[in-house]
Design a binder for these strands. Structure first.
Lengths: 243, 243
DNA sequence: GAGTGGTCTAGACCACCAA
DNA sequence: TGGTGGTCTAGACCACTCA
């Protein structure tokens, strides 16, 4: 009879992966920073380089970390021209990529209603910030966003700090609150433009829009943002790939 | 083993990966089949098991092949309850998963117009099949599909063969034409239901719908299907994940 | 128990980058 | 030139499956 020493087998590299993730949660290395070299981590954790390598390989596959041959391994970030478009799935039908301009409409503090609280794993009525903004491509308004984040994690957020920042919202979240978005789930429906959307997107009521609901997660799969985007898709499409 | 240094460096495992892919294209192993064991492939290609392993790891990451510990490595297939939903991103808001029922509307032979030909990499006017069908969840029509495939690759396709088959369309393509879909790109817009959609989906004209355009690819990134789905999203959503 | 994929190691060497 | 990630090997052993 073989009694398994532990209820479930856990490979070494998986444990290493967890340890690295914990260091990321603890903020030992922030977005954009280099993490220690494979050899350093191998000696720190007392395993072979190959084992550390496999752990980092998986983190890289999840876009939590980025490898650069000859330079090192870096914590993924939403800063920089390339990475700022990482979570932006809307693109022009003619394929020309362009980063949208963001116009802030309002920042308010609210109490989380039931469904918002559930999605962000907060208690009902918890304090949240609600950011409304308009994304425009080539000066034409295309997306009306309503973004909700827990106030507890984003202390000090207000209209002025956001306006003072140039760059993507997630890049702003990283640099001001140390919160890195690493994964997101989206649920998409087709809806009709109401009065509010019609005004901001400068279209007629009744025009069809994509309603894109997103929950975004940080390290440890902790949900930290819920947003709803209403997107005018006359010259734009939501692009996905699957395999 | 000595690799001659060529203008661009190509790792051994990458070459192995290409060789395996070529065997898949040649039909040496079909969907659902087991491919040779890592050791067998290692001796066949005269490399170490670790190198074959890395090649297969990548193929597995792309869902081209599926590893099963203790059993072997198998060519990915759309047959079977689990895999038939692999490319279906529409799901009920309440989370209950259910495989839709398909009602065939028509199968016609047509000449590819310019844009269809371009997407499928055919010459203008090439012969294609056009399949129209209705997908229903719990008896309620939700998606109106129009599917285009090159006639040259799907010889003998007609209404009767499709009707005689029970199972997903991609499963049918695999078993009857040996064509396995391994990757797809989708472009999504919001549109209004026209007369045709209204009739089939039993809704009023002007109801907002998702218009989902897909190009699907086989081994070697060869496009073999273009489809447009019009989807009623009252109780359903298109679900995606990103990282 | 034989065969498969999965883990882990140790070591050699290559490609890339920066100083 | 030294450090980093990337490749490749050979071998030992573990976990899983099935006959």
């Amino acid at each position: 009879m073989n009694i398994p020493s532990s209820p479930s087998f856990r490979p070494l590299y998986d444990q290493i992966k967890i340890l690295i993730t914990q260091s990321l949660i603890a903020g030992e290395w922030g977005p954009g920073d280099a993490i220690p070299s494979e050899i350093d981590l191998a000696t720190r954790f007392k395993v072979s380089q190959g084992t550390v390598r496999k752990a980092i390989d998986e983190l890289a596959a999840e876009n939590i970390v980025i490898r650069r041959q000859g330079k090192g391994t870096f914590v993924a970030s939403h800063s920089g021209e390339r990475s700022s478009t990482r979570f932006l799935r809307i693109s022009r039908d003619d394929g020309l990529a362009e980063y949208p301009q963001s116009d802030l409409l309002s920042v308010t503090r609210e109490r989380a209603p039931e469904n918002t609280a559930a999605l962000l794993e907060l208690r009902n009525g918890a304090s949240i910030f609600c950011i409304k903004r308009l994304l425009s491509f080539e000066g034409k308004a295309q997306i009306l966003d309503e973004i909700h984040v827990p106030a507890a994690s984003f202390k000090g957020l207000d209209e002025h700090v956001i306006r003072a920042y140039t760059g993507s919202l997630y890049s702003f979240f990283e640099s001001h609150f140390g919160i890195a978005m690493i994964r997101a789930e989206e649920h998409i429906k087709a809806v009709l433009a109401g009065p509010d959307e019609a005004t901001h997107l400068k279209i007629a009521e009744g025009i069809p829009l994509l309603r894109i609901d997103r929950v975004a997660f940080t390290y440890g799969d902790r949900p930290v943002e819920w947003r709803r985007g209403l997107c005018h898709t006359n010259q734009f499409s939501y692009v996905t790939e699957m395999s």
